[in-house]
Amino acid sequence: MTRGLVAAIQAIWRTLSAATIADDLEGEAGARILTAVVGGQLTVAEGAQAYVRAAMAAQDGSAIPEALLVAEAFTGVAPDGGPLETLLYVPAIGVQRRLAAGMSPDEAMLGGLADMARYAATAVSDTARSATQVAMAADRQCVAYTRIVQLPACARCIVLSGRQYSYSEGFLRHPNCDCLTVPLRRGEWAGVDGPDDLYGRMSEAERRRVFTVAGAEALEGGADMGQVVNARRGMSEAHVHGRRLQVTSEGTTRRGLYGRRVRRAGGEFARAPGQRYMRAQTPRLTPEEIFRVADDRAEQLRLLRRYGYIV
Rank of each mutant, 00 (worst) to 15 (best):
A58P: 00
P152M: 14
V124H: 01
S249I: 11
M56Q: 02
P175K: 11
W189H: 10
Y145W: 15
E107S: 12
G39F: 06
V90T: 08
S17V: 07
S203Y: 02
I33F: 06
T35K: 15
R279G: 01
R276N: 07
F269V: 03
I93S: 06
W189E: 09
G81V: 10
G259D: 03
R147D: 05
L151E: 10
Q275K: 13
T75M: 02
E289Y: 03
D295N: 08
S104A: 15
T253I: 14
D23K: 14
L160W: 12
T146V: 08
G259A: 05
I310Y: 03
A137R: 01
G4H: 04
A45Q: 06
A135H: 05
Y51P: 00
E72A: 15
R232K: 10
A270H: 08
I290E: 02
R260M: 14
R97F: 05
D196Q: 15
L304K: 03
E288T: 09
E26C: 02
R271G: 04
R255G: 08
G267S: 09
V70T: 13
T127P: 02
A218F: 02
V95G: 00
E299L: 06
R244F: 06
R260F: 06
Y165V: 09
L304R: 03
Q246I: 14
R208Q: 14
Q227R: 14
G102Q: 06
R118Y: 00
Y307W: 09
L5H: 04
D296S: 09
L285V: 13
V44S: 03
Q150Y: 09
P65I: 13
G4Q: 11
G308W: 06
R201W: 03
A280D: 02
Y51N: 06
M278C: 08
S62C: 04
A120E: 04
A137Q: 10
A101W: 10
V38T: 11
M225Q: 04
F74C: 04
R173N: 13
G234H: 06
G234L: 11
A48Q: 01
V192F: 09
L25S: 01
T20W: 09
V6Q: 02
Y145H: 14
A18V: 11
P91N: 08
A123H: 03
E206P: 00
